[in-house]
Nucleic acid binder design. Structure first.
Lengths: 176, 176
DNA sequence: TTGTTAGTGAAAACCATTTCCATTATAGGC
DNA sequence: GCCTATAATGGAAATGGTTTTCACTAACAA
């Protein structure tokens, strides 16, 4: 499977005996609470991955993450990265992005400092990605209305949307 | 590569001696002219593929097309289908779509009767796709403005966009 | 500290798509 | 209507991102 965006959120995870729902995070990382609250264990690998995502400009592929992590955590394998990214995506903590280059990319849904809503502008030649926030308010407004309208008309429970522009960046356009 | 949408259009094809640019189509099919005008040969396979696309509800994957075509044209291989879809997409005759299920899908850009602009609403559970035209005018208007604004600000030559909604359809939402 | 079981890594499997290459068939020129 | 250059083809093999398998390891509630 290679979906766009996170599909559904929340704790669909079986919780063990004591209900640890309340986020009584003990402060090791801002995500600790959310994680534990859903019955997931907090492991070295998971922390490393979350950490690398929060410390970079976003749009990392699984392999990018592997590369960033490997020197310090040589025994976190690619498999674990894929699995963790899937979990994080289901929890709504990261977004899974598809820029059409045949590999999924991921970005934090909201950093410690809170969300920073943006969409993407992708160069189809060199795959450069620009995060833009221009027109975002209008976009979000229209999306919200459309979402509502479509939801009612087609009986869909809409959870997600993608809006993306493709084209040639200055360099690639010049190359011709 | 697994891109979204057609990337760039037009005849980037070397033309043979006589410039057959003018679409002096002799009527075998509405696409004949466009095809030949760009220096491409019109083959059985290509016609079969175009035909199957124009005769179905859209959103066909390469394999779907293979299945539809195979009984009548058993010697058109999957490879040819992929290659043809790529050509058609470059010519702007079809759109390459990605609904996040790990395989590309294709639809005619405009039928013989002309374009029928729509966007897509995708069920993330059963992969059903609804073509909607509601709010299309507002969407297109906003997209045009954004496209212009972004193009200028970031020096991008924008050629394409994707706007898509994801969610659960009535049935899948009921399943819980 | 211990037991339960979620999580892990390496290797193999998967699978849509692409590449290779020898063969075939389209269409412009005659 | 035939000839010829070469675009197009198809089967098999390769590719490459992602997933599955399975035996082993470690997180954490008690």
């Amino acid at each position: 499977m290679q979906g766009n965006g996170g599909r559904g959120h929340g704790c669909q995870r079986g919780k063990s005996a004591g209900d640890t729902q309340r986020a009584d995070c003990r402060g090791q990382g801002w995500w600790h609470g959310k994680f534990r609250g859903c019955g997931y264990r907090l492991t070295t690998g998971r922390e490393a991955i979350l950490d690398s995502l929060s410390k970079s400009e976003g749009h990392l592929s699984a392999e990018d993450i592997y590369m960033k992590i490997h020197p310090k955590y040589p025994n976190v394998g690619l498999t674990t990265i894929y699995r963790t990214l899937d979990v994080l995506s289901n929890l709504g903590m990261i977004y899974k992005l598809d820029f059409g280059d045949g590999r999924a990319r991921y970005e934090l849904a909201e950093g410690p400092k809170g969300a920073h809503h943006h969409h993407h502008l992708v160069c189809t030649d060199c795959n450069k990605v620009v995060d833009y926030t221009d027109f975002i308010d209008e976009e979000v407004e229209l999306l919200r209305e459309t979402e509502k309208g479509l939801g009612v008309k087609y009986n869909f429970k809409i959870t997600n949307h993608v809006i993306q522009f493709y084209g040639l960046c200055e360099q690639c356009s010049g190359k011709k």
